[in-house]
Design a protein around this nucleic acid. Structure first.
Length: 652
RNA sequence: GGCGAUGUAGCUCAGAUGGUUAGAGCAUACGGCUCAUAUCCGUAGUGUCCGGGGUUCAAUUCCCUGCAUCGCCA
């Protein structure tokens, strides 16, 4: 079997965050899983480096676009090894080979008549020097310049996407796995039920030069998506070469839901126009929220993968991300959740199973794998559970149902822990007559640990390596590195020497408390366990918050740059504030303040409040005001700072 | 406004083409063990399976409708 798995190429206008890391870890785990199954695997990621946003960012930093993209692209490339992600190829859209191929494809599609010159009318903002989409507008205005964009007409090149619409619909119906999970397939089909418009694939060089020149008209550069998607081909040597023929036939893409349309509509129609077969599968996943809140730069809650690795360890991060998210749906990230997973799944269940088994082997067989005796009923059940796990694991990994695959692995871990309790090796060890039985039980534990090492390898390579070392196996031993050879019961060899290793996963303290206040442990150790003690303290102090909780509130000074009444509301004002990013806040102060008197004022805001929609306007924060009474009437008085400070200053 | 998804235990989520006592993990309470990382094992709960109506001998499951949340489209 052959496998070609890709992530999107990441746009270099921002640094890698949790979402990028998740997509790339998924692709890495899948590629490792396929290798485990003996496949010839090619795994590609990279960076997308053209377009106006990049050009703007470079200007802002006063460097050339090329210098800028080199720097950010390197950040991506360097962050993957920290997560034990090993791509076979890292492609950049500024690579000469890529540029050449994109131009060749454009020429071909142009020559066959699927690209034509036409007119485009769009909403152009002079301030931004670019077209805005309807979605970006706030009340019909450019969000950055507070004025309506102009409808202007520009001549451009268009790709005849509409020509391939029906072919694409037919393909999706004929290949149920083409877009998965199903909800995204439905979304695409629903979008395709309306006539497609042709895709504008050029930008005039008068507006943008940072792009790939159209080979047939030097006055234009290529629209970023038409450029970027082609990376999946250039990265494997299209149009020539063995790699291309071998890998393109089995291509699978992993993406997040925000780029569904380019991948499920632009890309297949482009391929149809090029006369190429379509990719095999498109795997679409959801978003990681932070707690309940969407991760975003303006809220300032962006999670950096490198920090997680430092805090929790790389394998914990990989495990958590795959276990916690149902592939396709959104999931929620929090330090509480990751600590919980680490403590209960990794330390208590897996780590402790490994540790207790190894300890008994050391004590009872001098760390030698014993020779098993006759199989009894509990042994049979353990074996059956293991075999069942192997088949569920393989099936679910192949279907990108990582959380289910891991669930079945943990079913075995949990069963093995029960097996120990039922078998009571420590009792057997006391009776010489039971030695055969003891050896059987211990052998079965070794065998279970070996199978766990095998299946955990794609997800937690470092841990699997440690486990292998503990089991006295070489990392390349096919019994733990090859699924078809290793995934069966009974392959551990008696006589193998086991090695003592450190704990796989030390337990972590819960994030909310450090644990100083437990000196007062009472008589009965169990009843006054630290955990309960903490709980009681917390209950007694309802209403008091921890310093850490306070720190989570992002208070800032904001300058009011615009204010207006919200129609149909007596109480609400819509404020535009600088803090220092521009954001819209809806405040219920219209009864006490006029828009005019607010202009230029410095107010205090909560900057990381979950955004809400009030009277159809999204509010990204909250303005602080004192509640008071003047002559018996309720009154709100805005808070402010006593001196002049810059907008955006933190308040603490 | 159109289309679609989701709504199940305190929390996160499984689940059945309709059929006895609706499940798992976490959290909680109690008990057991001592090989183990204060770990592990067992027992115990709580559910108007979103509301309302319909089909049926039987609906949490199918149909209709309402509400809530989310997504896509306009």
């Amino acid at each position: 079997m052959t496998t070609y798995i890709t992530t999107p190429i990441y746009y270099v206008n921002a640094q890698p965050h949790l979402g990028h890391a998740y997509t790339t870890i998924v692709a890495d785990v899948y590629s490792r899983f396929c290798r485990l199954c003996g496949d010839d695997v090619r795994f590609q990621t990279g960076t997308d480096e053209h377009g106006d946003k990049i050009a703007e960012a470079a200007i802002k930093e006063q460097v050339s676009p090329k210098e800028y993209v080199d720097r950010i692209s390197a950040l991506y490339r360097e962050s993957w090894p920290q997560l034990h992600i090993i791509p076979d190829n890292f492609i950049r859209t500024t690579d000469a080979v890529h540029i050449e191929t994109v131009q060749r494809i454009l020429q071909q599609v142009y020559d066959q008549g699927d690209i034509y010159f036409g007119e485009y009318t769009g909403l152009y903002c002079k301030g931004c020097e670019r077209f805005l989409t309807e979605k970006e507008l706030v009340d019909g205005n450019c969000p950055d310049h507070q004025r309506p964009p102009e409808a202007i007409t520009e001549q451009n090149y268009f790709f005849r996407m509409s020509k391939y619409q029906q072919q694409l619909i037919d393909h999706i119906h004929a290949h149920p796995d083409f877009i998965t999970p199903e909800r995204y397939k439905n979304e695409v089909l629903s979008f395709l039920s309306e006539p497609l418009e042709d895709l504008c694939i050029s930008r005039p060089t008068s507006r943008l030069t940072w792009g790939i020149a159209l080979p047939f008209d030097q006055n234009f550069v290529t629209y970023v998506w038409f450029d970027a998607l082609i990376n999946y081909l250039t990265g494997i040597g299209y149009p020539e070469g063995e790699s291309f023929l071998k890998y393109w036939a089995v291509a699978e893409h992993v993406i997040a839901k925000d780029i569904l349309k380019p991948h499920a509509i632009y890309w297949p129609t482009m391929l149809l126009a090029m006369g190429l077969p379509l990719f095999q599968r498109l795997h679409v996943h959801g978003y990681w929220n932070v707690g309940e809140i969407k991760m975003s730069k303006s809220i300032g809650n962006v999670v950096r993968p490198a920090e997680l690795v430092t805090e929790y360890g790389v394998d914990t991060v990989r495990y958590f991300l795959l276990r916690e998210m149902s592939f396709g749906l959104d999931a929620s990230f929090s330090s509480e959740a990751i600590v919980m997973r680490k403590n209960s799944d990794l330390a208590n269940d897996l780590g402790n199973l490994f540790s207790r088994s190894m300890a008994m082997l050391e004590k009872y067989t001098d760390s030698q794998v014993p020779i098993p005796g006759a199989t009894e009923e509990p042994d049979m059940i353990l074996q059956e559970t293991a075999v069942q796990m192997l088949s569920l694991y393989r099936e679910n990994m192949g279907r990108f149902q990582f959380h289910r695959a891991l669930q079945s692995v943990w079913d075995l871990i949990s069963h093995a822990n029960k097996y120990i309790v039922v078998s009571e090796p420590w009792v057997l060890a006391k009776e010489p007559a039971q030695q055969k039985r003891l050896h059987t039980v211990l052998y079965n534990l070794v065998e279970t640990l070996r199978l766990l090492t095998l299946v955990l390898r794609p997800v937690m390579p470092e841990t699997a390596q440690k486990m292998a070392a503990g089991l006295g196996l070489d990392g390349n031993d096919p019994r733990i590195s090859n699924f078809s050879q290793g995934a069966q019961w009974g392959l551990s060899s008696a006589g193998t020497s086991l090695q003592a290793i450190e704990s796989l996963f030390p337990r972590m303290d819960k994030p909310e408390k450090s644990g100083a206040a437990q000196a007062v442990t009472g008589a009965s150790a169990k009843k006054n366990s630290p955990k309960k003690e903490k709980k009681k303290v917390a209950d007694a102090e309802v209403g008091v918050i921890e310093f850490e909780q306070f720190q989570q509130i992002d208070l800032r000074v904001a300058e009011v740059v615009h204010a207006e009444r919200i129609e149909k509301s007596d109480r609400l004002l819509k404020l535009t504030v600088k803090a220092p990013d521009t954001r819209t806040i809806v405040a219920g102060i219209a009864e006490y303040y006029t828009p005019e008197e607010l202009l230029g004022r410095l107010v205090l805001i909560v900057a990381n409040l979950k955004p809400v929609e009030l009277m159809g306007v999204q509010s990204q924060g909250m303005v602080l005001a004192a509640k008071t009474k003047v002559e018996g009437k309720k009154r709100l008085v805005l808070t402010t700072v006593s001196g002049v400070v810059t907008a955006g200053s933190k308040v603490a």
